[in-house]
Structures are given as C-alpha cells and as structure tokens.
Computed example of a mutant assay.
Amino acid sequence: MGIGPGDPSLLTLAAVKAIKTSEVIAYPVARPNTHNRMAAKIADRWIRQDHQHLPLLFPMVDEAETRQRAWTIAAYTLQDLVAHGKRVVLLCEGDSSLFATCSYVLIALRHYWPDCLCDVIPGISSVSAAAAIGLWPLALQRDHLLICPCPDTPEELEFELDEAKARGRVLALLKLGHRWDWVQPILKQRLLLSQALFAEKVGWPEQHVRPAENIPASRRPYFSLLLIRQTWPDVLP
C-alpha cells in the first residue's frame, strides 16, 4: 500500500481506510531492532494502540540472494497472518508499484500462494510530489517521461541526456545521493541547471525542493531526485 513520500496529508482516502480496518500494520526496516521506521512514521496518526506492529526486514544490500530471502520471508509471514484470518496492510513509501519493495513481496505472494487475497493501493510518488511542490510541469502534451535511478557514471548520464534531448524526453532521476557531486558539473556545462529541479526528502520537515542551480555540487542524501527538462512543446500560453 503506497502512503506517499513523507507528508501524512498525502495519504489517499483508500490508504487511510485500509489502515483503520486492518489488524496488523507491517512496514519495512533496513536493520533489525532499528528505530528508523519511515513508513510507519508517515502513517503514525492512523495507527492505533491495538494494532499489531510487524516490522519486516529488507536489508539494503546489493547481494541478490539476501534480498530474495528477505522478500520470501516477508511474503510467508504475511500469508500466514492472512491464512489465520488477519487483516494486514504492508506500508510502502511513495507509490506501491514504482521501485517499491512491496512489489517484490507481491510477486512472491502471487508465485507461492496464488490464492492469497491481495489488494494494491497506489500512492503519490516522490516524483509527482516534487513536481507539484516546485510548480514544475512534469509532462506536457507529447512529452516523454523517463523515471529511472540516476546513472552510475558520467558517460551513462551523458548518453541519457543526449537521448532525452533528441526525443523530447523529461528525465526523473531517482536515488541521486552521492552522485550529485559529479552530476551537477555536467548539467552546468550543458547549461541545464536552470531547467532542472532538485528535491530531497520530499514530504518531510527537512525537505529541499528548489532549482538545481541553487544546489552546489556535493554529496546529498539517498532520498534525493532530479527532474530535467531540455525542451518545451511548441504550443504554450
């Protein structure tokens, strides 16, 4: 269930209803016994004392086997609760189908327990929220929109920028983080900083959403993104 990027007021009515009518609130954590429960914090005002809390461990590692094991264990845990008649929601930051951990859990559930009753509730993505906060048109008329993780190398970014310019494509680069220290100079060289929107920790009290030209080259938090527009439609007000 998508609960938006951070601002509790961005939860949909469907998400709030699902929380209120559930018995178990499941949410992801990156480490055992951690207090960093971002998804649970977003939905905190609707979580009751009688709700059962269920932190599910999803380690942020590159090793495929570790991630697959975590998804399978989470799916088994949720399926077991549903099989015993419990109403369970799995909270997911942003949208539940866009680079979302719960997507992998859903795939595992559908694979191992195809009869397990599941509903997916969409949420507002950080990309949509950042564009709205920054008064930044995300896509217009026949624009293409590419949402993807930020490339890992300058060469890959240069290629994506060239492709985007040729195709009238708006880029939404997620997980910008430490890459901003070399991404910023590339955009500066191409005179694109004034046409790009930088956002980090969208929806949280410490959020920054501002033109990219106001953000110096440096390492930024993991939850940061960049919107880049190189062309505009021919017909505008």
Rank of each mutant, 00 (worst) to 15 (best):
K188Q: 15
G203R: 02
E200G: 00
V183T: 01
R190M: 08
W182A: 01
R190G: 09
I186M: 15
P185D: 07
G177L: 00
Q189E: 14
W180P: 04
K188E: 13
L197I: 11
G177Q: 00
G203N: 06
I186Q: 14
W204G: 01
Q195S: 15
K175D: 01
L192M: 12
G203V: 05
W182Q: 05
W182Y: 05
R190T: 06
G203S: 05
K175L: 01
A196T: 13
H178V: 10
Q184W: 04
Q195G: 11
K188H: 13
Q184P: 06
L191W: 09
L192F: 09
P185C: 05
L176D: 02
W204Q: 13
K201S: 12
A196D: 03
L197S: 09
Q189A: 15
F198M: 10
R190E: 11
F198Y: 15
L192H: 08
L197A: 09
I186E: 11
R190Y: 04
V183G: 01
W180F: 12
Q195Y: 12
R179L: 01
A196S: 15
G203P: 07
I186W: 02
G177E: 02
D181I: 11
H178Q: 12
D181E: 14
L193V: 11
A196L: 05
Q184I: 04
L193C: 12
V183Y: 05
Q189D: 12
G177C: 00
E200T: 07
K188L: 10
W204I: 00
L192I: 07
V202K: 06
A196G: 08
L187T: 08
Q189M: 06
V183W: 00
R190V: 10
Q189N: 12
W182I: 01
A199W: 07
W180T: 02
Q184Y: 04
P185I: 10
Q189T: 12
E200R: 12
W204D: 01
L176K: 03
E200A: 03
L187M: 08
Q184F: 01
